[in-house]
């Protein structure tokens, strides 16, 4: 767990102390990923399910000729299966060796966050907690920064 809380690995924003974060909502929670990891944001399209995959693996889609796997973030965070609506979007993220899609309810914003606002995620063994990399404090809001490699992991550690 401690590795997931290490903030030194965060990508550097152009401005030395600011990190751009793409935020989105699930219920009343605000979550975010670093803007550098986001390739594109696209509408929902039906997935082709994969046999014997973990429950948060929705299946694969065709992204302009490439095949990418799509993950249900709600399920991964222990919030029950997602219900696809008009505002549902898939955030296509770059995991380094491959692309992946993450299904979220809606995208909210792109914000600049000073690094000084980053806090270590609480080390509580709740379902989905290992998927958080850090908590960003913004006024009265707390934004949970996702650990993408943990999101796509099929067996939670």
């Amino acid at each position: 767990m401690s590795a997931a809380h290490d903030l030194s690995g965060l990508p550097q924003a152009a401005s030395a102390d600011l990190q751009q974060i793409v935020t989105f909502r699930i219920d009343d929670r605000t979550l975010g990923v670093e803007v550098e990891a986001v390739r594109e944001i696209k509408g929902w399209q039906p997935t082709t399910p994969l046999p014997n995959a973990a429950s948060h693996v929705l299946g694969v889609i065709n992204l302009r000729g490439a095949i990418i796997a799509v993950y249900d973030l709600r399920r991964r965070l222990g919030l029950g299966p997602a219900e696809v609506s008009r505002s549902s979007v898939v955030i296509v993220v770059d995991l380094g060796e491959r692309l992946a899609g993450i299904l979220v309810d809606a995208v909210s914003d792109i914000i600049d966050m000073p690094r000084s606002s980053f806090r270590a995620a609480p080390d509580i063994a709740g379902e989905g907690d290992d998927a958080l990399k850090a908590l960003l404090v913004r006024g009265n809001d707390v934004i949970a920064l996702l650990d993408l490699s943990a999101i796509v992991r099929e067996t939670p550690i």
Binding site: L50, P51, N52, V60, A66, I67, A69, R98, L99
Partner: peptide, 16 residues
């Protein structure tokens, strides 16, 4: 289309 490089090997499936 290779599935291993975009997800992982899936039993019973050779490609997509």
């Amino acid at each position: 289309k290779n599935l291993e490089s975009s997800f992982r090997r899936v039993e019973g499936v050779s490609a997509a």
